[in-house]
Lab assay of single mutants.
Amino acid sequence: DDWEIHFNNITIRLHGVSEEQIEELKELIKNGAHEEELRKWAEEVNR
């Protein structure tokens, strides 16, 4: 699925990401992940 997530003036566009991966991302954000951590997560997902 395609997703677009907005938070802290950042837009993250995701393509072909599962519901499970979105839940992981929500947890990262909820736990106060920094932009660098989110980038690493996105790189892993996009492999």
Score class of each variant (00 low, 15 high):
residue 42 A to T: 04
residue 14 L to E: 00
residue 32 G to L: 02
residue 28 L to C: 01
residue 20 E to F: 10
residue 8 N to F: 07
residue 38 L to N: 00
residue 21 Q to M: 08
residue 4 E to R: 11
residue 24 E to N: 06
residue 46 N to E: 10
residue 14 L to C: 07
residue 44 E to K: 14
residue 15 H to F: 15
residue 30 K to Y: 06
residue 39 R to S: 03
residue 26 K to F: 15
residue 23 E to V: 08
residue 10 I to N: 03
residue 18 S to I: 02
residue 42 A to L: 14
residue 11 T to D: 03
residue 39 R to Y: 10
residue 18 S to P: 04
residue 31 N to K: 10
residue 43 E to H: 06
residue 39 R to H: 07
residue 6 H to F: 09
residue 18 S to A: 05
residue 1 D to C: 15
residue 15 H to N: 07
residue 23 E to P: 00
residue 13 R to M: 07
residue 43 E to I: 08
residue 13 R to Y: 13
residue 31 N to S: 11
residue 47 R to V: 14
residue 3 W to R: 04
residue 23 E to S: 08
residue 26 K to N: 07
residue 9 N to Y: 14
residue 35 E to K: 04
residue 32 G to T: 01
residue 22 I to V: 07
residue 15 H to I: 11
residue 1 D to N: 13
residue 39 R to W: 13
residue 8 N to R: 13
residue 4 E to N: 07
residue 17 V to F: 10
residue 28 L to V: 01
residue 38 L to V: 10
residue 17 V to L: 13
residue 20 E to I: 09
residue 47 R to H: 13
residue 36 E to W: 14
residue 45 V to A: 15
residue 41 W to T: 01
residue 10 I to F: 11
residue 13 R to S: 08
residue 47 R to F: 14
residue 32 G to W: 04
residue 43 E to K: 06
residue 28 L to A: 01
residue 41 W to D: 00
residue 31 N to Q: 10
residue 15 H to P: 04
residue 34 H to P: 11
residue 40 K to Q: 09
residue 43 E to M: 07
residue 6 H to A: 08
residue 19 E to A: 12
residue 1 D to F: 15
residue 42 A to E: 06
residue 26 K to P: 00
residue 12 I to R: 05
residue 16 G to Q: 12
residue 22 I to N: 01
residue 10 I to C: 13
residue 31 N to L: 07
residue 18 S to V: 03
residue 33 A to R: 01
residue 5 I to C: 12
residue 13 R to F: 12
residue 15 H to Y: 15
residue 44 E to F: 10
residue 16 G to V: 06
residue 1 D to Y: 15
residue 12 I to E: 02
residue 2 D to N: 12
residue 31 N to G: 07
residue 17 V to E: 00
residue 30 K to M: 11
residue 46 N to T: 10
residue 45 V to F: 14
residue 24 E to F: 11
residue 41 W to Q: 01
residue 25 L to E: 00
residue 41 W to P: 00
residue 37 E to P: 01
residue 41 W to H: 01
residue 37 E to M: 10
residue 7 F to M: 07
residue 47 R to I: 15
residue 37 E to N: 03
residue 37 E to V: 10
residue 4 E to Q: 08
residue 25 L to V: 04
residue 41 W to C: 02
residue 41 W to K: 03
residue 5 I to E: 02
residue 18 S to Q: 04
residue 27 E to N: 13
residue 30 K to C: 12
residue 7 F to W: 10
residue 22 I to A: 07
residue 43 E to S: 07
residue 9 N to H: 09
residue 14 L to A: 02
residue 29 I to E: 00
residue 37 E to S: 08
residue 23 E to G: 08
residue 39 R to F: 12
residue 1 D to T: 14
residue 23 E to H: 10
residue 3 W to Q: 04
residue 10 I to G: 05
residue 32 G to V: 01
residue 1 D to V: 15
residue 4 E to T: 13
residue 19 E to W: 13
residue 15 H to S: 10
residue 20 E to V: 09
residue 30 K to W: 07
residue 35 E to I: 14
residue 42 A to N: 01
residue 5 I to N: 02
residue 4 E to D: 08
residue 7 F to Q: 01
residue 41 W to F: 05
residue 18 S to E: 02
residue 2 D to I: 15
residue 3 W to H: 05
residue 42 A to H: 04
residue 40 K to N: 06
residue 45 V to C: 06
residue 11 T to L: 14
residue 22 I to Q: 03
residue 6 H to P: 04
residue 26 K to I: 11
residue 2 D to A: 11
residue 13 R to D: 06
residue 31 N to F: 07
residue 31 N to C: 09
residue 17 V to A: 13
residue 46 N to S: 10
residue 35 E to H: 06
residue 45 V to Y: 14
residue 21 Q to K: 11
residue 19 E to V: 13
residue 19 E to G: 08
residue 7 F to V: 11
residue 43 E to L: 08
residue 25 L to K: 00
residue 19 E to M: 11
residue 27 E to S: 14
residue 25 L to P: 00
residue 27 E to C: 13
residue 44 E to P: 00
residue 9 N to S: 11
residue 31 N to R: 14
residue 24 E to I: 09
residue 14 L to M: 06
residue 10 I to W: 05
residue 36 E to Q: 08
residue 32 G to Q: 03
residue 13 R to A: 04
residue 14 L to F: 04
residue 4 E to H: 15
residue 2 D to G: 12
residue 29 I to L: 08
residue 26 K to D: 02
residue 23 E to N: 12
residue 36 E to N: 11
residue 17 V to I: 11
residue 15 H to L: 10
residue 12 I to V: 05
residue 44 E to D: 08
residue 22 I to C: 06
residue 39 R to G: 02
residue 45 V to Q: 10
residue 26 K to W: 15
residue 7 F to D: 01
residue 6 H to Q: 10
residue 32 G to S: 02
residue 29 I to Y: 05
residue 41 W to E: 00
residue 37 E to L: 07
residue 32 G to M: 03
residue 23 E to K: 10
residue 5 I to P: 02
residue 15 H to Q: 07
residue 3 W to K: 03
residue 4 E to C: 12
residue 13 R to N: 08
residue 12 I to M: 08
residue 4 E to M: 12
residue 36 E to H: 07
residue 5 I to A: 04
residue 6 H to L: 11
residue 43 E to Q: 08
residue 23 E to F: 13
residue 41 W to N: 00
residue 13 R to H: 10
residue 4 E to L: 11
residue 14 L to S: 02
residue 7 F to C: 09
residue 8 N to W: 07
residue 21 Q to A: 08
residue 24 E to S: 08
residue 37 E to Q: 10
residue 6 H to W: 07
residue 8 N to S: 09
residue 36 E to F: 11
residue 11 T to H: 06
residue 46 N to P: 03
residue 43 E to W: 11
residue 6 H to M: 12
residue 1 D to I: 15
residue 22 I to S: 02
residue 13 R to C: 09
residue 45 V to G: 01
residue 9 N to Q: 08
residue 20 E to Q: 14
residue 37 E to A: 11
residue 10 I to P: 01
residue 19 E to I: 12
residue 20 E to W: 14
residue 41 W to Y: 03
residue 12 I to G: 02
residue 10 I to T: 07
residue 20 E to A: 13
residue 29 I to F: 07
residue 18 S to Y: 05
residue 44 E to Y: 12
residue 44 E to C: 08
residue 27 E to Q: 12
residue 1 D to Q: 15
residue 21 Q to I: 13
residue 39 R to M: 13
residue 32 G to E: 02
residue 36 E to D: 13
residue 16 G to F: 14
residue 7 F to I: 10
residue 6 H to K: 12
residue 27 E to G: 09
residue 8 N to G: 14
residue 26 K to Q: 06
residue 9 N to F: 15
residue 38 L to Y: 03
residue 15 H to V: 11
residue 47 R to E: 15
residue 34 H to D: 14
residue 10 I to M: 12
residue 15 H to K: 12
residue 34 H to V: 10
residue 21 Q to L: 12
residue 46 N to D: 08
residue 26 K to G: 03
residue 45 V to L: 10
residue 40 K to I: 06
residue 34 H to Y: 05
residue 38 L to I: 13
residue 28 L to E: 00
residue 11 T to R: 06
residue 27 E to Y: 13
residue 25 L to N: 00
residue 39 R to Q: 10
residue 2 D to K: 11
residue 21 Q to Y: 08
residue 24 E to V: 10
residue 2 D to L: 13
residue 12 I to N: 03
residue 11 T to I: 13
residue 15 H to D: 05
residue 22 I to W: 07
residue 24 E to R: 09
residue 3 W to F: 11
residue 19 E to H: 12
residue 34 H to L: 12
residue 25 L to G: 01
residue 13 R to V: 06
residue 44 E to I: 08
residue 34 H to E: 12
residue 42 A to V: 13
residue 38 L to F: 05
residue 42 A to R: 03
